[in-house]
Each structure stands twice: as structure tokens, then as C-alpha cells.
């Protein structure tokens, strides 16, 4: 077996894993405070669109990522308003955000490509991609086979850092304890003087913004052109499933995200070997795996009587 191929596989797995990781962590944050956001897929699509347009206009990938955060956070604010302030159905609101995000995201990306940016914008793509070239850790990155684990790009390091940071916040800080208590028992948290509404707003907005960052990173990292079709391709939904897989724990989210990154990379890898129609079926492996994992986790949760934050999906009102 060829070492370069293994390296390529690892790089792809880690790249896609990073997309999953950032989106999953965003959802973990908002669900820990009790708000399910099913709009992840749409927020990622909006993030992708805003990121690529802003990055190409400013010729700066980081501004693109920042804009993606802001745009997705703005849309997540609508979700927070509907579910926290108006106490409406979180599933319905999330689905609406999903469909709106995909529709508007794809439409405007296509429109920007055809009308605003013009064909010469494509020439700038390699330049903005340069922001995500890998940073080699001296020494470790030269180890055969696993060297690529130590030559990640900035966003991959950011994802890992974010996972550890969230874990630290949740389990080692006052704020984290407050977030968790708002998700478990908002009435008790309220009685203890915690501002339930404010905390839910903040976590939902930041969580949504992170989904935008994941979408922005995905499109800038892998784009060879500006796609006029959806680029997220269900990854937002897998990220939501990963939250359950991780049992709302940021560190477990890291494992899950990379595992699904590897599953997806495996497909590209096998495609190179076999080609043809049969391998096409393998593209469904992540989705089949997600269903199996969801089932196992649900059985596990029933058996051990553990699971989601107690108040997840339930609006809180002081009455």
C-alpha cells in the first residue's frame, strides 16, 4: 500500500472531520442550554455562501469565515427569538431555518457567481485557499504514515481547541454550570438567579454562528469552483446526529466528528480504486452508519436512563 495514499486519506478525513467537529460543537453548545437547532444544514449553507463571496471580494479567507459566522449567527437569532422569546415549536422553527438557509444560500451563491463576481473571480480561489495550508509541527510531521496528523491547517487546530475549550467551560467554570443547569432545569436555574433567556439566546446564536464557520471552511477548503448547487450535502444533519452520539460531551464530539470524516474520506479513496456504479452505494455509508449509531445510542440511553439535557426542546416560561 502506498504511503501517499494513506496520507491523502488522513488529510481528507481530518478536513471533513473538522467541518463536522465545528458544526457539532455549535449544536452541543445550544442543546446544552436546552435549544435544539435543526437548522444546522441551512446555517452551514448560508455560511458557505457568505464565506466564499466575502473571501473572493476581499481576497481574504478569514474575513470570509468571520462574515459566515455573523450571517449564520443572525439567522440563528431568528431561531432564538421564535423558540426562546415566543416559546414556539423548536422542531418546526429549525426545519424552517434549514429550508430557508439552503434555498437562499444556494440561490445567492449562484447569483453572485453569474452576475456579481464574474468569471475572473475563479482565478482568486487558489489565493484564498492558501489561508488553509497545513501547518507542520517540526519533527512530528515527518513521521511516516501518521505525519499528516501533525500537519493540520489552522481551522483543524481551532476545532480541536474549541472542543477542549467547551469541555473546560462546561465542567470547570461557573458559566458552564449555568448553561448546563439551564438545559436541565430552567425553573431551578431561574430561581437561582440565572438569566435563562439571555443564556439561551447567547448559546443559540454562537452555536449557529459556528455552523456558519463550518460551512465557510468547507467551501473554501474544498472548492474548485463556486457551486450553484448545495455543498453541505446533509453534513449538517449528520452533525446533529453526532451530538447524540457524543452524548452532548465536547470531547466525545471530537471522536465522532473524525470518525465520520474518515467514513466519508473512505468513499473517495475506494472510488479511486474501484470506480463504477457499485462504489456509488458506499456514499450512503455515513447516513446508514448514523442511523445505526442513533439506534444504538437510543437503546443505551433507555437502558442506562441517561440522555439528552432534561429540558431539551422545551420552551421555558415564568408562569
Amino acid at each position: 500500500m502506498n504511503l501517499d495514499l494513506i496520507n491523502l486519506f488522513l488529510i481528507q478525513a481530518l478536513t471533513i472531520g473538522t467541518v463536522y467537529l465545528i458544526a457539532t460543537l455549535g449544536e452541543v453548545l445550544s442543546e446544552r442550554a436546552g435549544v435544539v437547532n435543526l437548522g444546522l444544514e441551512g446555517l452551514m449553507e448560508i455560511g458557505a455562501t457568505v464565506a466564499i463571496i466575502v473571501a473572493l471580494i476581499t481576497e481574504n479567507a478569514w474575513l470570509g469565515i468571520l462574515a459566515a459566522f455573523v450571517a449564520a449567527a443572525a439567522l440563528a437569532t431568528v431561531h432564538a427569538f421564535a423558540t426562546v422569546s415566543l416559546k414556539l415549536n423548536q422542531f418546526a422553527s429549525g426545519l424552517a431555518i434549514y429550508i430557508f438557509g439552503v434555498g437562499i444560500g444556494v440561490t445567492f451563491r449562484g447569483y453572485a457567481r453569474d452576475v456579481i463576481l464574474g468569471p475572473q473571480a475563479l482565478l482568486k480561489i487558489p489565493k484564498i485557499k492558501a489561508a488553509f495550508t497545513s501547518i507542520k509541527i517540526p519533527g512530528l510531521s515527518n513521521i511516516p504514515v501518521i505525519g499528516s496528523l501533525f500537519s493540520l491547517d489552522v481551522m483543524a487546530y481551532f476545532g480541536l481547541f474549541l472542543g477542549i475549550l467547551l469541555w473546560f467551560i462546561f465542567y470547570r467554570t461557573r458559566t458552564g454550570l449555568n448553561i448546563r443547569s439551564v438545559g436541565e432545569n430552567p425553573a431551578a436555574a431561574d430561581a437561582a438567579g440565572i438569566n435563562v433567556f439571555r443564556l439561551r439566546y447567547i448559546t443559540t446564536i454562537i452555536g449557529g454562528g459556528l455552523a456558519g464557520v463550518a460551512g465557510g471552511y468547507l467551501i473554501i477548503k474544498i472548492a474548485t469552483q463556486i457551486a450553484g448547487e448545495t455543498v453541505i450535502l446533509g453534513r449538517g444533519w449528520i452533525a446533529i446526529a453526532l451530538v447524540i452520539f457524543a452524548f452532548w460531551d465536547p470531547l466525545r464530539a471530537i471522536i465522532g466528528a473524525y470518525f465520520f470524516g474518515a467514513l466519508e474520506a473512505l468513499f473517495y479513496w475506494l472510488q479511486g480504486y474501484f470506480g463504477g456504479a457499485t462504489v456509488v452505494m458506499l456514499k450512503a455509508v455515513p447516513h446508514i452508519s448514523a442511523i445505526i449509531i442513533l439506534t444504538i445510542m437510543s437503546i443505551e440511553a433507555l437502558r442506562k436512563r441517561i440522555g439528552a439535557p432534561e429540558a431539551l426542546g422545551k420552551p421555558y416560561s415564568r408562569e
Binding site: G42, Y98, G101, V102, G103, I104, T107
Partner: peptide, 8 residues
Amino acid sequence: YVSVGFEG
């Protein structure tokens, strides 16, 4: 996709 946007 614009119709999807309107639908959303």
C-alpha cells in the same frame, strides 16, 4: 432554488 428560499 429561489423557490426553496421563498418556501423557507
